[in-house]
Nucleic acid binder design. Structure first.
Length: 218
DNA sequence: GCGACAG
DNA sequence: ATCTTGTCGC
């Protein structure tokens, strides 16, 4: 039983779970956004972090961090297997509720249509948006996709006739779960003070700082 | 054997 | 992801 059979098995699970992904808006209110991130350096000791922001003024409502251990190696296309549990764990420490979650990694713009954002969304049954700065496999996605000039700063990325996501300010955005691409893009845009949307930027800063503190105190 | 892929 | 100084410019 080698690692290859293992990932093949997991790939099949990703294919089947991808059917559960909903690419339509499934929420009544849209007032708060959360961002999650996991940062680490050596071994598999990491810090999972989450920040909840008010959508209007981007005011931070809550910050949480949690030391976690990762049990699966990083393999492109299988980030969800590595980080989903850590992400879900830190989400469970939140006191505030949130309407949508921004995840560091792809949503449906994934070889099997089931990136980390989809996995977190489906397992937690919450709306999620996937934001990544690189494509998973340039060869895979480029041979089947074309970029179209779309409204404003967005470039829609489609495969045949279905929309996989969009490119915006150096970031690849795609639906994670329970949200439409249109709404996902508007949320990314309205939270993008810098190139990285605030929910993810703030969370990444928090996770990194916390990791350093943890390192110094021990 | 070569290729080069989220975090 | 992370390892890392200075440097340009508001």
């Amino acid at each position: 039983m080698c690692i290859h059979n293992f990932t093949q098995e997991i790939a099949n699970i990703q294919f089947s779970l991808a059917d559960r992904v909903l690419e339509e808006d499934c929420f009544n209110s849209l007032d708060t956004v959360a961002g999650v991130d996991v940062s680490f350096s050596v071994d598999n000791q990491a810090i999972a972090a989450v920040v909840v922001l008010q959508l209007g003024d981007l005011e931070i409502l809550e910050k949480r961090t949690l030391p976690v251990e990762l049990f699966f190696p990083y393999i492109p296309g299988f980030l969800g297997v590595r980080e989903a549990d850590a992400v879900i764990s830190v989400l469970n420490t939140l006191e505030h509720d949130f309407d949508v979650l921004m995840v560091n990694g792809h949503g449906v713009m994934h070889p099997r249509g089931f990136g980390l954002a989809c996995q977190v969304g489906v397992l937690c049954d919450v709306p999620t948006i996937g934001v990544a700065k690189r494509l998973i496999d340039g060869r895979y996605i480029k041979r089947a996709t074309q970029r179209h000039h779309a409204i404003g700063e967005f470039q829609l990325i489609t495969e045949n006739n279905n929309e996989l996501g969009a490119f915006f300010k150096g970031k690849y955005v795609s639906v994670g779960h329970k949200i439409s691409l249109k709404t996902a893009l508007s949320i990314v845009k309205m939270t993008s003070v810098f190139k990285t949307p605030e929910p993810i930027r703030q969370t990444h800063i928090l996770a990194t700082e916390t990791f350093k503190q943890e390192l110094t105190s021990n």
